[in-house]
Design a protein around this nucleic acid. Sequence first.
DNA 1: TCCCCGATGCGCT
DNA 2: GCGCATCGGGGAG
Length: 286
Amino acid sequence: MSAVAFCLCLITTHELSQRMRQKKKLAKAEEQQSQADTAQMPSLKKPYLGPPLTMGSQHSIYFCQSLKDHSARLGSEFFDQPAISLARAFLGQVLVRRLGDGTQLRGCIVETEAYLGPEDEAAHSRGGRQTPRNRSMFMKPGTLYVYIIYGMYFCMNVSSQGDGACVLLRALEPLQGLETMRQLRSTLRKGTISRALKDRELCSGPSKLCQAFAIDKSFDQRDLAEDEAVWLERGSQEPSASAVVAAARIGIGHAGEWAQKPLRFYIRGNPWVSVVDKVAEQDTQA
DNA sequence: TCCCCGATGCGCT
DNA sequence: GCGCATCGGGGAG
């Protein structure tokens, strides 16, 4: 069933059955997402292979990613640095996702958060906690830590140097495969009526980018330096130190003094960032 | 544009 | 049984 037909079907039902169908839709979407990595995605359009579909005047002035060099994959040595350093180093690099049908998605990293390990009260590894869920936080630098949040979304982290330390990817500037991302986001979104998502809504949040890049729990514990379906490439231009804003992390109000530490990093003035912190921007003058 | 709030179910204590 | 590294819709300004 196409997404449109599916939505029309939902609109005509009363609320109770609507809720039941929402659940079915979510289950179907999750199934489709899993299949995306291993098989065909018949409902998805062919990827856009032209120049980056960025938003003209709103495109970041700090860098412009070229699509020419596809061989610049970052190796394990890149990930072998402390979380704060890695979180900064990620900015301007390009996340690449190859789907089962060969479609490639690309996005430039514009926002990250560092989680420092056992000492960090906001980290899942606080106090040295090691559980089946967060095991990948303790694995070699470059290992993906993907977990489920609020029972319905995924967040994607990359293990860094230091036991239990990692970097959360919070926002990307979509560069290639925007229509596929839009399809993936629309299919996986909660709710019944799918309005068309704006480009800025595709990857401006940790779970949004997971949806747009078809990243799910099956990516947990994968090696970003070696995996065939997801990797990182060096961007054509990295932001200068003064173009990077250090702000408090998002959604960790329970973490006491650690909630205030400037461990979120984003590119100043970049329209693809999920949450702008004007006070932090004043504190870290350009 | 910002704020509020409900959805949702896994993982941990 | 409770909390959560989120998201999106709706309403106010």
